[in-house]
Amino acid sequence: MHKTWQKWGCILLGSVLLYGCSSEEDVIKMADVPVVESAFHPDTVWSHSIGSGVGKFYSHLQPVIVGDHIFAASRDGDIYAFDKQSGKKLWHIDLSDQPFFEEKRSARLSGGLAAADGHLYVGSENGQLLALSLDKGELLWHTDVGGEVLATPATDSGKVVVTTGAGQLLALEGDTGKIDWTVTSEQPNLTLRGTSAPVIAAGGVLYGRADGKIGIVLLQNGQLVNETRVATPHGQTDLDRMVDVDATPVIVDDELYAVAYNGQLISRKLISGDELWKRKYAAYQDLGVGVNDIAITDSKSHIYLVDRATGTEKWSNTQLEYRNVTAPLVLGDYVVVGDNEGYLYWLSQTTGKIIAMQEVDSKGLYATPIIDDNLVYIQTRSGELVALKRP
């Protein structure tokens, strides 16, 4: 039986809330759980609770691996460090009781995790960026950045760079949290509740914007170097004209790949900006990048594989329509995604057929799985960090 989502007031598209409201009821029918005879069933090597997870909130928290350790966080403020192979807990801190948080409001962690130079960085819906020590989990500093931090920070050359829901890009000193520079972009009337994670490359910072462009600024001082348009607003309503670039820009060699909501997937030369190809897709999730291909999960939870050199679509899979699938992970012969009912799917990279599936957590999956050595790590909505043996 199909499940029905009824939506009133603020519109929900996939897993991303819009900044804006509608008075009309909208109904989306979610596809049934597919019936699959799994070719394999990856074993669970270890799992550990990391607090209350993110629940139904849009908190873009994803584990990060540094050396032999993996770090994970929950929305309420729990942050853990584990040995990545055994799952042994190394340290834990609860940020919810910090005096700088407003009374009766949790830490509301929402953007991260990122690590560099012995520091662990995480942002919050409270408009703060926080830094902890990697070795002990001690809080080192916190800085008010003037807007919700909904995406993973980027780090390089002693700086940490964040985007905010207020349309700002900021660079801070990694050791002290002092703000070096700020760049502000004009926000359309209606935007998705999300931001693109910045990317640092060759002394520049690339970041997606709500106006359908990717901005490029100098890491040293925030000076604008270039803008490249991914999608052009069109239509009569603010909803029709939404072209947010919320997916993280992807750089492979000297080529840039980006996708916009209500827009398109583009490939361009990074330095010259020359267009290589463009294709019509509407997506806000990060792209999955393989050796020769790009995987996409669009706003309807359809999954596509596109040839990276030509933009030719190799296959599409619509079996998981509106199941709120995660951004894809391209892993060897497979494209891996999770859904909002907690199932993990392994699709053939050759055909797009679902080869195997398993239920990881009935409360749902939201973060892209990550791979390291022989293990695949998955963070669930209920607050479980699960390590599966790679097939």
Rank of each mutant, 00 (worst) to 15 (best):
A171H: 08
L172V: 06
L172K: 04
E173V: 11
E173R: 10
E173Q: 13
E173W: 01
E173Y: 01
E173S: 11
G174E: 09
D175T: 14
D175Y: 04
T176N: 05
T176Y: 08
G177W: 03
G177K: 01
G177F: 00
I179P: 01
I179V: 15
I179K: 13
W181H: 01
T182R: 13
T182I: 12
T182L: 07
T184I: 01
T184V: 10
T184C: 01
S185N: 11
S185W: 08
S185A: 12
E186N: 10
E186I: 11
E186P: 03
P188E: 02
P188R: 01
N189F: 10
N189M: 11
N189P: 10
L190M: 15
L190S: 10
L190V: 15
T191G: 05
T191I: 15
T191D: 05
L192R: 04
L192I: 09
L192Q: 08
L192H: 02
R193Y: 15
G194H: 09
T195K: 09
S196W: 06
S196E: 06
A197C: 02
A197L: 03
A197E: 06
A197D: 04
A197V: 00
P198M: 04
P198E: 06
P198F: 03
V199L: 12
V199R: 05
I200L: 11
I200M: 09
I200T: 08
I200S: 09
I200W: 06
A202R: 14
